[in-house]
Design a protein around this nucleic acid. Structure first.
Lengths: 189, 189
DNA sequence: CCTCGAAGCTAATATCAATAGCTGACCGGA
DNA sequence: TCCGGTCAGCTATTGATATTAGCTTCGAGG
């Protein structure tokens, strides 16, 4: 009906909440429209269809992830930094499960805004590697290792991939230990 | 038209090929029906709708993954076993990208067939951990570590998550090295 | 107070999943 | 041989959903 005062900002934010609640698979323009109290086609005034919305969600999520990582990494280095960043990463995935999945969509080539957000997140991990004295190609591979471990863990955790009831907190400590050891005893190849 | 000689087996196999080609997101009963040359509703004679098909794909994929891992792990132990299993895991994810994603869907509680297939895959990883002398809770955590690293790496690789052009093969070697070190110097907690 | 852009609407179309109900091909037994 | 039943496959239909087209109206700036 009357003006809703809707903005792209709010549409995307609300979509983020929606996917956290119901899962990415059930992100639907109809459901989102209901949520912001507008007819579905009206969303097109703010967002470029479902593909556009997904892209916007990806940007939002990477920004929030980058913020979370950066906030926790300030003023620490070495193992402390690794631990803080790893924990922040896991926390983000647990607190925003829908958004987290969206953060994995790679930027389209030429999407500067999206790429900038990704770089910012990567930068934090890069700093962690630097704290272990890694640079150049070694840093690249180390970053990939860190991301693999963290992403693998949180996504298996989210997918209920760890059937046994043993504590995932303990597993996570092992993960951090292993990463710390790998970065400490890094062998260039 | 005339009898098509279609079987559940073939429907699911063909669905597996389809998702490898076009991606899980574009798995559609319509597309699958076209592929096997049948009208869409006819698929319901073989498969329990889209949810049922997805579940069948999950079972198929876990079986193929388990087969691949087991085939490569026979007769080796320790680092050799780790390397072989890790490589087989990565190979599966690269050769069958659609199926690989389906392999991540956790079995529904009480789905014995699905759970059995999952156990078989887990068993291979368990054997790898055993090769490093790990048992009990340590083995559980070690398995989770291995799965996290492997899944994280292959899924980031598949999602084009590694933007830089540096060799992913080298990264993978670092991954295996790190896992080997972690398992060798395992510290119970 | 007029204008115009933007925000919202309704109506219509296309794609897809799913259900209902029909048909005819094959198989086994009398 | 023929008869009947099962079951694979069909067409028709309904209900979601995305998307487009085109209309309406609010509200801010001159």
């Amino acid at each position: 009906m009357g003006r809703q005062g809707l903005t792209k900002e709010r549409v995307v934010t609300e979509a983020g909440r929606l996917i956290d609640e119901v899962g990415l698979a059930r992100l639907t323009l109809t459901a989102l429209a209901d949520r912001v109290d507008v007819a579905a086609p009206s969303l097109y005034k703010h967002v470029d269809g479902l593909p556009g919305l997904r892209r916007d969600l990806a940007v939002l999520s990477v920004r929030e992830l980058a913020d979370g990582l950066a906030r926790n990494a300030v003023g620490v280095a070495g193992r402390d930094a690794l631990e803080r960043v790893a924990t922040a990463y896991r926390q983000f995935a647990r607190a925003r499960p829908g958004l987290y999945v969206a953060s994995l969509w790679a930027p389209a080539p030429g999407d500067d805004e999206h790429e900038a957000a990704s770089s910012r997140a990567l930068e934090v991990v890069h700093a962690v590697a630097a704290g272990y004295g890694l640079a150049g190609d070694d840093a690249i591979h180390a970053i990939r290792l860190i991301r693999s471990v963290l992403h693998g863990f949180v996504s298996l955790e989210a997918a209920n991939g760890f059937a046994m009831e043993q504590s995932t907190a303990v597993t996570f400590e092992h993960l951090v230990d292993s990463l710390d050891a790998a970065l400490t005893n890094w062998e260039p190849r």
